[in-house]
Design a protein around this nucleic acid. Structure first.
Length: 1060
RNA sequence: GGGCGCUUAGCUCAGUGGCAAGAGCGCUGCUUUUACACAGCAGUGGUCACUGGUUCGAAUCCAGUAGCGCCCA
């Protein structure tokens, strides 16, 4: 710590209080707290530590970029849970780490290389991976430092990366077992193919561009010569691969063509007519006239499963073949699956797709089968790399058979039965297992918060498709399979392989003896192929042997989610903990307590973790709760993104508001009903002040900050917005510096932190350092002390209940209301006159303060840790029935508790009356603008005076009373009446002269309000249905309220009369 | 196209059948009362998106309409 450290303690024997700076400076607390936490290693957990296990696996952030506000939110919530349970005494471990994010990371690195004029193909695989590795190292370090800045209490000794050796071992083991259990197979799939770079692209690497194209109307004759149908297409060159024509079953012509066959022109292939809902009907047949597609459609759709994703789906639904007519360079080819090449069709083989399009259109025209051409503007996917149109291309990929009951069924059975719809469907999907009747390990153990997300999970699994796990990338876990073509004579069980119709058939050969798993298949072209999956421990022996035998390793890597799916296993050392010195972790911390994540990832990640964890760990679920948190959007309901320049960097917020302020605000805004809008403000680089930027609408219709802004302090000074910088529409310069994004929302947290700081400062100034006496019994204390102890208990209970059901905003509000509204506004104000001289009251204050810091710690760890030693230096906290066990560190302190014996419910009720009385008097003071210094006199009946007496000076102090006396028989001149519990009280001496006009206005307002109330009550009480059916105590309560309101009304009327 | 949500004060959001609809920010007035002006006290502000229904009673439950968002296809 620097000399700016705001805490300076005097000599212990000096007896004087500690000195704190007037304003809270977050940066000091952040440095101070981390130095203590690090020294104590207090976030490290060992399986042998005491306490029931509580663990959380961080959703590993991608190493593509620094953490954004969404990460800040999710990690704050996880940290709140982690710190809370640690304080509860559980054996708490929060596993940190990062994800290699295959496609995303490779893309950003390739994009950066492209700026230097280089491509992936300029490097060897090893060189390129080294480049990506550099990027990863940089961002992994950034991310971990961000987690620390935010105060995340991860077990940093256990940081994992999805491609480090521990995780890689798990990937190898998992793949091997799935392969060996025949849950992995080869399948076909359409990928986004770039014919120039000859690579597959991820969906987000495809850029949609508007293109001026055409619809060609082609005639396909019926096989029986009875005429033709006309199909419309934007891509006539694909017709060589047509295997059906589809129309909508609702089309009026459907019955007439049902069962008929068509003869595909040029090729001569006979193809069926199928009926499918997907087909857009032409306007004439009942299609939507407002739908552009319907305007262009004929109602007949050519189906080319191998060259169009929608046609692929139709092909699967109707069982028609997929015929690939193109080579990887997108030229027409008869060597990639097209076998029925007619003599006429042979002329097109070898043409580029562009030439083929022209030639085919010409052929249809020449043969009188071209019905027409219409211009059509539509969007076409282009490669972000080569900028040519992307070709949907059929290719062979590796799949996991997640539709198997051992995976899909297990995931469904893991659901809490109370959250799962449809008992019948449930037992049907459990298949054979349902017959056994007994629930297996892990069944029914996963509960979603909020519950509605269980539906997403269930629906996903009921409609799940097999999972394509291969990716044509270099960055990732390489698929551990070697393959080679083999002679038919080498196939041992040829009959079984032949009857498997292309599927892999496991076998026991020489490779299995070497520790590998082996399978053989017969390809459609009749060639036999052997696949060998190598287990990691067999690498040294098997790989050289495979290479020598002519086998080649698969070039592809695994989908990123394959290693992510193993996260709860791999990070704990599965399958060989001893190999990495990680014994005991898996048993202790898997299953974890909760997975906290965003909803978009339920299908990609949550589902797969459940399937894998259950499959590899004997049915165990990876986590018992799934908490889905809200999304943070900008002030216009738009996603925060780099390109819109509306993102808020957590590091900027930490700098301007402090980490605790950011955390508190994020926790408080996390409700479970809806997403949260965060209006984005900017920091003026010229003045340092926050302001709301001018906005414009961009081309895509988004509301964004104007690229150039002016300083709110000095309109002659220019500012560049993040949107301007992100889009290149403005460039930050010395004369127009970049403004940081921030949000005024975080002021709430900053103000609260400052309040906590100053409340503590006040308390420290009033606490005489003593050993502390925990035997002080709250029951012997004055009303206000008994009240605050009861309210502490209430706050703790509310907080605990809220966290138990992941209602974070309720938890934050509980702390805010208790600390600010109750401790600061009432308790501290109430004890000001007495606390300095009352040692027992000091013990109450010390204890309330100590417990408050503990209560606040999970959400505001830094400020509480910094204040902790100062409070401890005043003496041992604790009261009879209020337990706050001593601790060196707030982060390791026990969670406070209040025994029911120390909770005085009567005190709460009485104090609530005191608050009402004070409020009434204050309202009048406010209305009459009575100066705070002026002491006024209250004239009240005996019952009210007794209440004032019981409050022990609190009413006098908070309402500014100088004297309390009995009501005189005659109303004194200048007395102003107020209503309290249906009685009339008088206030006198509050002003030198009564303003009659103002007084009349006030009373008339009171009368109007009371009349409104009374009419509401009367309406109810005159309603026979209400009297008959509502709960009796409710009716009685209404009557009481009615009586009070009437008394108040009468009093106000009398006062008004008196003024006349 | 299918699914899941949302619409409450100027703004951001609570409030899942019962007192008179709440909080924070903003705004207005007063107060620099030695914890805090990043504050205190008081106040202003709402046809609970719309239409219908159930109920003694609806912001809350049901149905429909409109708008917005997300996921899947």
């Amino acid at each position: 710590m620097s000399s700016a450290q705001p805490i300076e303690s005097s000599t212990p024997t000096g007896g004087s209080e500690l000195q704190l700076a007037k304003a809270y400076t977050p940066a000091d607390a952040e440095t101070f707290a981390w130095s203590r936490w690090r020294d104590a290693r207090c976030f490290h957990a060992e399986p042998t530590d005491a306490g029931a296990p509580y663990s959380i696996f961080i959703p590993p952030p991608n190493v593509t970029a620094a953490l954004h506000l969404g990460h800040a939110l999710n990690n704050t919530l996880q940290d709140v849970l982690t710190r809370y349970h640690r304080m509860k005494g559980m054996n708490t471990m929060w596993m940190p780490g990062t994800d290699h994010a295959g496609i995303a990371t490779q893309s950003v690195v390739e994009r950066r290389l492209l700026q230097q004029g280089k491509r992936r193909s300029d490097f060897t695989r090893e060189q390129f991976i080294a480049k990506v590795q550099e990027w990863k190292d940089e961002y992994e370090a950034t991310i971990l430092s961000q987690l620390e800045l935010m105060g995340a209490s991860c077990d940093y000794d256990r940081v994992r990366f999805t491609m480090d050796p521990v995780c890689a071992a798990a990937v190898r083991a998992a793949f091997f077992k799935l392969f060996d259990d025949s849950l992995i197979y080869r399948g076909k799939r359409l990928v986004n193919w770039d014919p120039v770079s000859r690579t597959a692209l991820a969906d987000d690497e495809v850029e949609m561009e508007e293109v001026d194209g055409h619809f060609w109307y082609l005639r396909y004759p019926f096989e029986d010569g009875s005429g033709y149908v006309t199909v419309a297409t934007t891509r006539p060159e694909t017709m060589l691969g047509d295997t059906a024509v589809a129309l909508n079953p609702k089309d009026p012509r459907a019955a007439a063509v049902r069962g008929k066959k068509l003869c595909l022109p040029i090729v001569g292939r006979v193809i069926p007519i199928v009926e499918d809902d997907y087909v857009v009907m032409a306007v004439e047949q009942g299609g939507d006239p407002a739908d552009t597609k319907a305007q262009f459609a004929t109602g007949f759709l050519k189906v080319t499963p191998a060259h169009d994703p929608n046609d692929w789906e139709i092909g699967i639904r109707h069982g028609v073949a997929a015929i690939n007519v193109m080579a990887p360079d997108a030229s027409i080819s008869d060597r990639h699956g097209w076998e029925d090449v007619s003599a006429e069709a042979r002329a097109f083989v070898g043409l580029s797709r562009e030439d083929a399009r022209a030639a085919i259109v010409a052929w249809f025209k020449a043969n009188g089968l071209l019905e027409g051409v219409r211009p059509y503007r539509h969007s076409v996917g282009h490669s972000y790399r080569s900028h040519v149109p992307v070709e949907p291309y059929l290719s062979e990929q590796w799949y996991v058979r997640v539709t198997d009951d051992r995976l899909r069924g297990a995931a469904l059975r893991s659901m809490n039965p109370a959250q799962r719809d449809g008992g019948a469907a449930a037992s049907a999907t459990s298949g054979a297992a349902a017959g056994a009747g007994a629930a297996a390990v892990g069944d029914g153990e996963i509960t979603f918060f909020p519950p509605r997300y269980a539906k997403t999970f269930q629906h996903w699994h009921e409609n799940i498709r097999d999972w394509c796990i291969s990716r044509q990338l270099w960055w990732g876990h390489r698929i551990p399979v070697w393959s080679a073509e083999i002679a038919a004579s080498d196939v041992v069980d040829r009959a079984a392989v032949d009857s498997a119709r292309g599927d892999l058939v496991g076998c026991n050969g020489a490779w299995r003896a070497m520790g590998c798993s082996e399978a053989v298949r017969r390809r459609p072209d009749g060639v036999y192929e052997r696949f060998v999956c190598v287990a990691e421990h067999a690498d040294a022996v098997a790989i050289p042997a495979l290479a020598a035998a002519g086998f080649r390793q698969d070039e592809d890597v695994l989908d990123t989610w394959f290693s992510s799916a193993l996260w709860p296993l791999s990070t704990l050392g599965w399958p060989e903990p001893a190999r990495f010195d990680m014994q005991g972790l898996l048993e202790k911390w898997n299953p974890s307590a909760v997975l906290s994540t965003a909803r978009e990832i339920i299908t990609l990640w949550v589902s797969r973790m459940v399937m894998f964890n259950r499959y590899f760990l004997g049915g165990r679920v990876p986590f018992r709760h799934v908490f889905i948190h809200a999304m943070v959007q900008d002030g216009f309901g738009q996603k925060m993104s780099k390109s819109l320049g509306n993102g808020v960097d957590p590091r900027d917020i930490i700098q301007t508001h402090g980490a605790d302020a950011m955390r508190f605000t994020l926790v408080q805004m996390t409700t479970d009903t809806q997403d949260v809008r965060m209006p984005v403000d900017m920091v003026d680089p010229w003045s340092g002040e926050m302001f709301s930027p001018r906005t414009i609408t961009d081309a895509a219709g988004y509301t964004v900050a104007d690229p150039m802004q002016v300083s709110p302090k000095d309109p002659s000074k220019q500012i560049t917005s993040a949107y301007g910088a992100a889009t290149g529409k403005a460039t930050p310069t010395v004369d127009a510096p970049l403004a940081l994004n921030t949000s005024a929302r975080f002021d709430v947290g900053r103000n609260f932190a400052n309040k906590v700081w100053n409340a503590t400062r006040f308390a420290l100034g009033n606490l005489t350092p003593v050993p502390g006496d925990a035997s002080v019994d709250p029951a012997t204390r004055p009303l206000v002390d008994r009240w605050i102890v009861a309210r502490l208990s209430h706050a703790l209970t509310t907080y605990e209940r809220a966290l138990a059901s992941y209602r974070f905003n309720d938890a934050a509000d509980a702390t805010y209301d208790f600390v600010w509204r109750e401790v600061c506004d009432w308790y501290l104000e109430a004890i000001k006159p007495t606390v300095k001289t009352d040692a027992a009251q000091q013990q109450v204050l010390r204890t309330v303060l100590d417990a408050s810091l503990r209560l606040l710690h999970p959400q505001m760890p830094f400020i509480t840790e910094q204040l902790w030693p100062a409070v401890a230096a005043t003496g041992r906290a604790g009261l009879r029935g209020v337990n706050v066990p001593a601790s060196e560190l707030c982060a390791r302190a026990g969670w406070p508790s209040v025994d029911t014996s120390a909770v005085d419910r009567a005190a709460v009720a009485t104090f609530s009356r005191v608050q009402q009385l004070v409020d009434e008097i204050r309202t009048l003071r406010g209305a009459r603008q009575v100066l705070p210094k002026r002491k006024i006199t209250l004239l009240a009946p005996a019952g009210v005076r007794a209440l004032v007496a019981e409050a022990g000076g609190v009413v006098e102090a908070l309402a500014g009373l100088g004297e309390v006396a009995d009501l005189p028989t005659e109303r004194p001149a200048g007395a102003v009446p107020i209503a309290f519990e249906g009685q009339e009280l008088l206030l006198v001496n509050f002003s030198d002269a009564v303003d009659l006009g103002a007084e009349r206005t006030r009373l008339e307002k009171v009368i109007t309000e009371k009349l409104r109330l009374i009419s509401g009550f009367e309406g109810k009480l005159n309603n026979p249905g209400y009297l008959a059916k509502a709960k009796p105590e409710l009716v009685a309560e209404t009557r009481t309220l009615m009586e009070e309101a009437k008394a108040d009304l009468d009093a106000a009327r009398r006062s008004l009369d008196a003024l006349r």
